Simulated scan of single mutants.
Amino acid sequence: MTYLLEIIADEAIAGNDAIFLRELGYSIREVRVLRIVDDNPGITFVEIWEKSGLERSLTSRILQKLIGDGLLLRTSSGTDARKYHLSTTDKGQELRQRGRVMSDVLEALLLDPFPAEDRERLFEQIERLGRWVRSEEYRAALDGFVAPDAITGV
């Protein structure tokens, strides 16, 4: 199942990314980072990196681009010169809104084979699964995992 989820996500992102670039001039991942900052004014790099699920170096490159393009504003932390806080500019908020509309339209296209009630249930199930895989309980279960004898051959 995890393999299938990965394939679905990869295919959907790849197909939609070309549309995001063509219509908005920014990739899905760039708009994702913009959305995270817009939802969390004053957020730090580390918090963005954790929330985005992207590689650290990719997150850094995206932030530099968004700052350089005038979509994000960086302000220094008053207590730590190495730390800075980010917020969206008016231009960034406008792009975020356009990205939201684009995402909604493309998500509806992706879910076209499902009736409305199935879409809602699917979203709830995926959200539940997402909470589980990010939970301490799941991590603890993985840390304590012992393969059954049928796998180890013992």
Score class of each variant (00 low, 15 high):
residue 24 L to V: 14
residue 21 L to D: 04
residue 56 R to D: 07
residue 71 L to T: 13
residue 17 D to S: 14
residue 15 G to W: 01
residue 100 R to A: 05
residue 123 F to K: 15
residue 26 Y to W: 12
residue 49 W to R: 14
residue 76 S to Q: 13
residue 75 T to Q: 07
residue 140 A to K: 15
residue 33 V to T: 14
residue 108 A to K: 13
residue 91 K to V: 03
residue 147 A to C: 04
residue 154 V to W: 13
residue 51 K to N: 04
residue 40 N to F: 10
residue 139 R to S: 09
residue 67 I to G: 02
residue 145 F to V: 04
residue 10 D to W: 01
residue 95 L to G: 08
residue 14 A to M: 00
residue 31 V to M: 08
residue 22 R to C: 00
residue 65 K to N: 01
residue 46 V to Y: 03
residue 48 I to G: 11
residue 140 A to G: 10
residue 91 K to W: 00
residue 95 L to F: 06
residue 137 E to A: 14
residue 141 A to T: 08
residue 74 R to V: 03
residue 6 E to A: 10
residue 122 L to V: 13
residue 115 P to T: 10
residue 52 S to E: 05
residue 93 Q to R: 14
residue 57 S to N: 08
residue 35 R to Y: 01
residue 83 K to H: 03
residue 96 R to M: 05
residue 79 T to R: 03
residue 51 K to Y: 01
residue 104 D to I: 07
residue 149 D to V: 12
residue 83 K to I: 11
residue 26 Y to S: 06
residue 54 L to W: 05
residue 126 I to H: 11
residue 28 I to F: 09
residue 127 E to F: 14
residue 6 E to F: 01
residue 58 L to Y: 11
residue 109 L to K: 15
residue 47 E to G: 11
residue 69 D to I: 10
residue 142 L to D: 02
residue 45 F to Y: 08
residue 102 M to E: 06
residue 121 R to N: 02
residue 29 R to Q: 10
residue 58 L to G: 11
residue 3 Y to K: 14
residue 93 Q to H: 05
residue 105 V to H: 07
residue 125 Q to K: 15
residue 140 A to T: 15
residue 21 L to Y: 06
residue 75 T to K: 08
residue 98 R to D: 04
residue 51 K to W: 01
residue 74 R to T: 05
residue 40 N to Q: 09
residue 75 T to W: 00
residue 115 P to R: 06
residue 135 S to E: 03
